[in-house]
Write a protein that binds this DNA or RNA. Structure first.
Length: 480
RNA sequence: CGAGGAUUGGUGCAGGAGGUAGCACGCUUGGUUUGGGACCAAGAGGUCGUGAGUUCGAGUCUCACAUCCUCGACCA
């Protein structure tokens, strides 16, 4: 069929307008809906289920390493937020503030949390007294509010869901290990769950979190060549702890200030999944976060009892094998269903028709590459885990190849500008370390330093922007 | 916050010389279909983003506001 005749169901092509394609996917794959309050969205069941899958995986992992979940208030008294100057300057401009309680003006303004460092510090100072109280390894699943001027579903919202880990340690070494350990966990989440090869490294001074000593990041490369900061892990040193008066008596009977970290990842990861894997037919979900991993579509099921029974039996077998499976026996035509589940990114489509049943087989089609295979009906459930794993690996390999082919080592400023303005991904350059050069790049081509990768092997002596002696390898790109 | 575009049944659009709203898709019911977005028939569903103004009369003209989209500046 000619898809131009079914305009309502089709989506903008990536090539024509990537931004519009993204918005189409969010709405038409039923991930979200716009809410009444500006900048806020409804996370619809299908979108929220993706978040739940991410949450389950991450939550289980952090518990393996001794972290505990807590919940702190959503409102922060103004005086508390003001205790750390650099921090408040970073966040206050984008805060929502409660000034009335009931019907009476409040004596002190309450800030809706944009992040919870100050709340955690205030809490920590009362519960940490001895080296025996350390480490503290807390995590909070919650939403935060930031009054963003421009919002886009999942990428930047006035409210978003996230986890924020907050830890305290007796030594600098231990805190630094925690910071990097959590960064590695985010990378592993990309590798094992999201099929996204994150590019990780340290943020430059100007891209750091307000109040942090060091900020580490995982960056993902979208299909339009732009980068998306997808998670961060911060080493705070003792700055916050000193401001908030968190102290402990160490084994040597000396009062000391603990070392602190925080790390977070948000529903922005859903945006990363959409833009790393999606195509012109819709969403393409990595199998381990897909709310539905396999969709069974019977052909002529209402006319052929054998087909109907085979479909139901297959669904039961797959469910028993732990596969998230759905059966669509609605009256829609098969063609409509094919398109619909492609739009929603379901990893595996299983067609069960009269021809299949007659031969005791079913036809499987992979969303990620359209590959088809015919399998004996009684082997599907047993082989599905391996099929899903293979799809995951295919998707990861494809995304990795894309990232690698969209990372260009540049030796001149003209090269850098060309790479970031033409959607070729990261420009890998030598840089002098000055803020002025970053500002220049931003003013000239709207690109920012994404990170200083861990591999700092120099490949030139001078800064590709100003020509001064180079001090670091850094990746520049336009970013969401 | 700056520039531009948009707002009419669930969705996408038309109406735009002021006279009381129309199409397609979707939805409901019945029937025929079913291996790439099926077809026929009968139905349900809107007072035109919000608030003012002009007018005998406003979807249509004026003004203000709101929201969404895109691009910039700011941030996960």
């Amino acid at each position: 069929m000619d898809k131009t005749n079914v305009k309502n169901e089709s989506i903008t092509r990536q090539e024509d307008d990537f931004a519009q394609w993204y918005t189409d996917i969010c709405l038409k794959a039923e991930l979200m809906a716009y809410a009444r309050t500006k900048g806020f969205i409804v996370y619809r069941p299908y979108g929220y289920a993706i978040w739940e899958a991410i949450k389950s995986w991450f939550d289980a992992e952090i518990k393996k390493t001794g972290h505990h979940n807590v919940y702190l208030p959503s409102l922060i008294p103004e005086s508390l937020l003001n205790e750390e100057k650099e921090h408040v300057e970073g966040f206050a401009p984008e805060c929502a503030i409660v000034t009335i309680g009931g019907s009476k003006p409040l004596a002190e303004k309450l800030y809706v949390r944009p992040t919870s460092e100050t709340l955690f510090c205030d809490y920590f100072k009362d519960i940490v007294h001895s080296f025996r109280d350390l480490p503290v390894k807390d995590n909070q699943w919650c939403s935060v509010v930031r009054w963003e001027k421009t919002t886009r579903p999942f990428l930047r919202g006035s409210e978003f869901l996230w986890q924020e880990g907050h830890t305290l340690h007796a030594t600098r070494e231990e805190a630094e290990a925690e910071t990097l350990g959590q960064l590695r966990l985010y990378e592993r989440m990309g590798r094992e769950l999201l099929a996204i090869p994150f590019t990780s490294g340290r943020k430059t001074e100007s891209e750091k979190f307000a109040g942090a000593v060091d900020t580490y990041t995982i960056e993902a490369l979208m299909k339009d060549g732009q980068a998306l900061q997808s998670g961060t892990s911060h080493f705070f040193g003792q700055g916050f702890a000193e401001h908030f008066g968190i102290k402990f008596l160490d084994a040597d009977n000396v009062q000391k200030t603990p070392w602190q970290t925080s790390w977070g990842a948000s529903t922005r990861l859903i945006g990363a999944v959409i833009m790393v894997h999606g195509d012109d037919n819709g969403l393409v979900l990595p199998p381990f976060i897909a709310p539905t991993q396999a969709i069974i579509i019977p052909i002529r099921g209402d006319k052929d009892p054998q087909v109907a029974q085979a479909a139901i039996r297959l669904k039961e077998e797959l469910a028993k094998a732990g596969i998230r499976v759905d059966l669509d026996d609605s009256k829609k035509s098969p063609g409509w269903k094919f398109s619909q589940y492609e739009m929603k990114g379901v990893p595996v489509r299983i067609e069960v028709g009269p021809r299949d049943v007659a031969q005791g087989v079913v036809t499987l089609t992979r969303r990620c590459d359209g590959a088809k295979q015919v399998l004996p009906l009684d082997q599907v459930a047993a082989r599905m885990p391996e099929i899903l794993k293979d799809i995951h690996e295919t998707m990861y390999a494809k995304a990795l190849a894309y990232t690698e082919s969209h990372t260009t080592t540049c030796y001149t400023y003209d090269q850098l500008k060309e790479v970031v303005t033409t959607g070729k991904g990261y420009a890998r350059v030598m840089w002098c370390g000055s803020h002025e050069c970053e500002v220049k790049v931003k003013n000239d081509v709207s690109a920012t330093s994404r990170c200083m990768p861990f591999d700092q092997t120099p490949f030139a002596d001078t800064c590709c922007i100003c020509g001064q002696p180079a001090r670091a390898v850094v990746l520049f790109d336009r970013a969401y």
